[in-house]
Amino acid sequence: MDFDFTDDQESLRDAVRRWVDKGFSFERRHALAKAGGATRAVYGELAELGLAGLAVPEAHGGMGFGPVEAMVVCEELGRGLVNAPYVHGALVAPALLAAAPAELQAAWLPKVADASALVVLAAQEAGARYRLDRVSTQAHASGDGWTLTGAKGVVPAGDEADAYVVPARWSGTPDDAAGIGLFLVERQAAGVTVRGYPTQDGARAAELSLAGAQAALISRDGLPVLEHAVDVGIAGVCAEAVGLMDRLTAMTVDYLNTRKQFGVALSSFQALRHRIADVKMQLELARSMSYFASLKLGEPAAARRRALAQAKYQINQSARFVGQQCVQLHGGIGVTDEYAGSHYFKRLTMIELQFGDSMHQLGEVSARMQDTAGVFA
């Protein structure tokens, strides 16, 4: 299999990297985080590069690119520690809206493509523990439309979004796989209450309360669409994590080469060289699993879901190891708020919790194993 990137993909990588180097310094990122984490302006700058429409079909004003191009962009945004809801607004939202009726797509996808509207997924509920099929929010038919009642938590950039894609149950009990629909709810709709707050990585999230909120139906059979969109999100944050780990490792190597103890550089100590070698091994393992995740997005649902759970589990493990080791190799400066390394570590920690933590993904992998697990064929 050819793992070389095409000329167009390399050009896309260079364009994103140039923007990061020129327009998004750590000082800017730190200032945004200290001011509360609002990132809509940064997202607008990414839209000027055409990146908001990366996954939107050309018929709706987007670029119509695929998973590999998305991986390239997310990796570069991670390397630059860019504070913007890119995965949620530019990758997950188009995957969800792709299942909507034609008129709803025509109304919203062009806005997603030019970033005049930020649409995010509001899926998590109290007690669900990342399970997509555990939905308590209720949907009721109301005339020609629908109304939703329930609550969603930790909605990414929820107080900056213009609309939400909300899974809600139109039939069945909270644990039924059937009866889950997807609905589009505008933030300004009556019955919508949003409470925003900053997150530990300098971004923002929100709690969403729905009390008879008006909604437009995207799909009555919403679970398969939701699972695919979440897998798209997993692939995106996996690539972002690789970029974060790559840059954090490079920063740590530079630090070991310049910081001196007992009159010699720290990199001259064999024990520390062994530790950075272990870090690089975990980085390359994470990179290969990120590639694996993106390439598996086109597979049938069963194979795709298992592959993305495997990838996310490994990324979580690598991110924790690389983050912890790099902080320790820096010493005290590695945890100071003024040093970029601590912010890379915090973002890696937040990524571990997005779209399913390690225990959840390990359970997903286990549940999807064949009886023999390939050992006793």
Rank of each mutant, 00 (worst) to 15 (best):
residue 3 F to Y: 14
residue 4 D to T: 15
residue 5 F to L: 14
residue 7 D to L: 15
residue 9 Q to F: 01
residue 10 E to F: 12
residue 14 D to L: 09
residue 18 R to P: 01
residue 20 V to G: 02
residue 24 F to A: 06
residue 25 S to N: 06
residue 26 F to N: 08
residue 29 R to F: 09
residue 29 R to K: 12
residue 33 A to T: 04
residue 35 A to K: 14
residue 36 G to P: 07
residue 37 G to W: 02
residue 38 A to D: 13
residue 39 T to W: 05
residue 44 G to N: 05
residue 44 G to H: 09
residue 45 E to H: 06
residue 49 L to Q: 04
residue 50 G to S: 00
residue 53 G to K: 00
residue 60 H to G: 01
residue 62 G to S: 03
residue 63 M to S: 13
residue 70 A to D: 00
residue 71 M to T: 09
residue 75 E to C: 12
residue 78 G to F: 06
residue 79 R to C: 05
residue 82 V to Y: 00
residue 83 N to F: 00
residue 83 N to P: 05
residue 85 P to Q: 10
residue 90 A to T: 05
residue 91 L to K: 06
residue 94 P to E: 05
residue 100 A to D: 03
residue 102 A to L: 11
residue 103 E to Y: 08
residue 105 Q to F: 10
residue 110 P to D: 05
residue 110 P to H: 11
residue 112 V to A: 03
residue 115 A to N: 09
residue 125 E to K: 00
residue 127 G to K: 02
residue 136 S to E: 11
residue 139 A to T: 01
residue 139 A to G: 05
residue 142 S to P: 02
residue 142 S to G: 04
residue 143 G to T: 10
residue 145 G to Q: 12
residue 150 G to N: 01
residue 150 G to Y: 06
residue 157 A to N: 13
residue 158 G to H: 02
residue 161 A to E: 04
residue 161 A to S: 11
residue 163 A to P: 11
residue 166 V to W: 01
residue 168 A to E: 04
residue 169 R to S: 08
residue 169 R to M: 04
residue 170 W to R: 13
residue 175 D to N: 13
residue 176 D to I: 03
residue 176 D to F: 07
residue 181 G to L: 03
residue 182 L to C: 07
residue 182 L to N: 04
residue 185 V to S: 01
residue 193 T to Q: 14
residue 193 T to P: 09
residue 199 T to F: 00
residue 206 A to F: 02
residue 211 A to L: 08
residue 213 A to I: 09
residue 217 L to N: 05
residue 220 R to Q: 10
residue 220 R to S: 11
residue 221 D to K: 13
residue 228 H to V: 12
residue 232 V to A: 01
residue 238 C to N: 13
residue 240 E to A: 13
residue 240 E to G: 13
residue 241 A to Y: 01
residue 245 M to Q: 09
residue 245 M to C: 15
residue 248 L to E: 12
residue 248 L to Q: 14
residue 251 M to T: 13
residue 252 T to L: 00
residue 258 T to N: 09
residue 263 G to C: 03
residue 265 A to D: 13
residue 279 V to E: 03
residue 281 M to N: 12
residue 284 E to V: 14
residue 289 M to V: 10
residue 291 Y to N: 12
residue 292 F to T: 07
residue 299 E to N: 11
residue 300 P to D: 08
residue 302 A to M: 11
residue 304 R to C: 06
residue 306 R to L: 10
residue 307 A to H: 15
residue 309 A to D: 01
residue 312 K to F: 00
residue 313 Y to W: 11
residue 313 Y to E: 12
residue 328 Q to H: 08
residue 333 I to S: 12
residue 343 H to D: 12
residue 343 H to F: 09
residue 345 F to C: 13
residue 346 K to G: 00
residue 347 R to F: 03
residue 355 F to Y: 15
residue 357 D to W: 02
residue 362 L to V: 12
residue 370 Q to G: 15
residue 372 T to P: 08
residue 374 G to W: 06
